[in-house]
């Protein structure tokens, strides 16, 4: 056992401070220490994208980051996307396009694609599929996810909004 360290982070605007071992992965910290179970553990080695979160403004794999590395940083998880009952354009488009079946991979897709739509407001299908290659979904075959991204992108452009 190695000495525990205090980790203080802000997750979705709320401050958390916990003492954890350095070997604790950030995804386990979010789930077990903060109780934020929307972020999922899929492969635990960076391949599937289910654990994708936003750390200091960019999307990262929370299974490839140790909780101690997030000390003092700001995190957004899938729980931080919707404003109360009001879904983001991307979440709403996932809902309307049936872009999820079991839903296990969905939080990771949403976190990665929210960043993608901010960087690429008018994506073509090739760009969408290239971005989707970083997240695995074993149910949908991706077609409905592509449709959802296209719908969300269009609505965001019409609205001139960001999320």
């Amino acid at each position: 056992m190695t000495a525990r360290r205090e980790v203080r982070v802000t997750v979705n605007g709320r401050a958390y401070a916990r003492n954890v071992e350095p070997r604790m992965l950030l995804v386990d910290f979010l789930r077990h220490e903060c109780g934020l179970t929307g972020t999922h553990v899929g492969c635990a080695h960076g391949v599937c994208g289910a654990c994708t979160i936003v750390l200091d403004g960019v999307s990262v794999r929370s299974c490839l980051t140790f909780a101690v590395q997030a000390e003092g940083k700001e995190i957004t998880t899938v729980e931080g996307l919707a404003d109360g009952e009001s879904l983001t354009a991307l979440q709403q488009a996932f809902h309307e396009n049936h872009a999820l079946q079991c839903g296990y991979c969905t939080p990771g897709f949403l976190m990665s694609l929210t960043e993608f739509l901010r960087e690429t407001p008018n994506p073509d299908e090739g760009q969408i599929r290239e971005r989707l290659s970083g997240n695995l979904c074993r149910c949908t075959g991706y077609a409905n996810i592509v449709s959802a991204v296209q719908m969300a992108a269009q609505r965001l452009r019409e609205k001139g909004g960001v999320s």
């Binding site: 994208g49 960019v58 999307s59 990262v60 794999r61 490839l64 990665s112 970083g134």
Partner: peptide, 12 residues
Amino acid sequence: MPYMGHATIRNR
């Protein structure tokens, strides 16, 4: 660069 992993991997 675009061939290295994925955008989320390259962020880090």
